[in-house]
């Protein structure tokens, strides 16, 4: 079966949501290997378009902010998507299945603090800590498991400034090489989770369009396997 017959019987287009930025670059070869060729505008990062047709009839791609991908899928606005498990865990939507690790977008979600603070404090005595983060739920859960109540200050960027300027004792954010932390005098204290990107599927879509969704899970799964094989060779 090829992609066109997979979606032939359904009246509505199937929507695949992909995140802008970091992950998209790594995801593009996988999307192509799965047999999806988006219209040319998709590769033009300056394009104002958010919705793109593909070579597959009834399959559309939308480009949204990485934090919004899970929300689009949870509410059924997109049926399939690529999202990091940082975002998936933060929202923890029961309406999302995460059937496939795409083995891309690797990094970690970590706690960091300034060197000076680490030298002078004893976290085992804490009952409370103030943390700057884009991930308040994950952060609260992490510190709660250590018996510490985390007061989260939600920042949307320049997280690294917050501990240095005394806004908080800790920050929680994605770390890939650690270069940004280092440049801002921060040290990675602990890792909360290993992050990679997943193919996610809306629950209703999986139930009402099982043939379509399973076809694409399999296509991406094969693409990931091929990637792994050629990396090993």
């Amino acid at each position: 079966m090829d992609g066109s017959t997979a979606t032939m019987n359904s009246q509505e287009p199937l929507v695949l949501a992909v995140p802008k930025g970091r992950i998209l670059k790594e995801a593009q070869p996988l999307i192509e290997a799965a047999g999806i060729l988006p219209e040319l505008d998709f590769n033009d990062l300056d394009s104002r378009k958010l919705r793109f047709a593909t070579n597959i009839p009834h399959l559309e791609i939308i480009r949204v902010r990485s934090f919004d991908v899970a929300t689009f899928v949870a509410f059924g606005a997109a049926h399939l998507a690529i999202a990091g498990n940082d975002v998936i865990d933060e929202f923890n939507f029961a309406e999302i299945y995460t059937p496939l690790d795409l083995n891309i977008g690797h990094c970690r979600l970590s706690v960091a603090a300034t060197k000076d603070l680490i030298a002078s404090e004893n976290p085992t005595r804490w009952s409370h800590v103030r943390v700057a983060t884009k991930y308040p739920l994950t952060t609260r859960r992490h510190f709660a498991s250590q018996g510490v109540q985390a007061e989260c200050i939600k920042l949307n960027g320049a997280m690294e400034l917050a501990p240095a300027l005394g806004l908080c004792r800790r920050m929680v954010d994605l770390v890939s090489t650690g270069a940004t932390l280092k440049a801002n005098g921060l040290i990675e204290v602990e890792k909360i989770a290993q992050i990679s990107s997943r193919l996610i599927v809306n629950r209703s879509a999986m139930k009402t369009r099982p043939t379509d969704t399973q076809y694409w899970i399999r296509a991406f799964s094969d693409a990931v396997e091929n990637n792994r094989a050629s990396a090993a060779a």
Partner: peptide, 28 residues
């Protein structure tokens, strides 16, 4: 459709459980 591994939302059920969906409708 079948989903032999689903149990969420069926906390007090002891046998066959089922969910009715509609293609194009969000939610159950």
């Amino acid at each position: 459709t079948l989903d032999p591994v689903e149990y969420r939302g069926f906390e007090y059920h002891t046998g066959i459980g089922f969910t009715i969906y509609r293609n194009g409708t969000r939610g159950e």
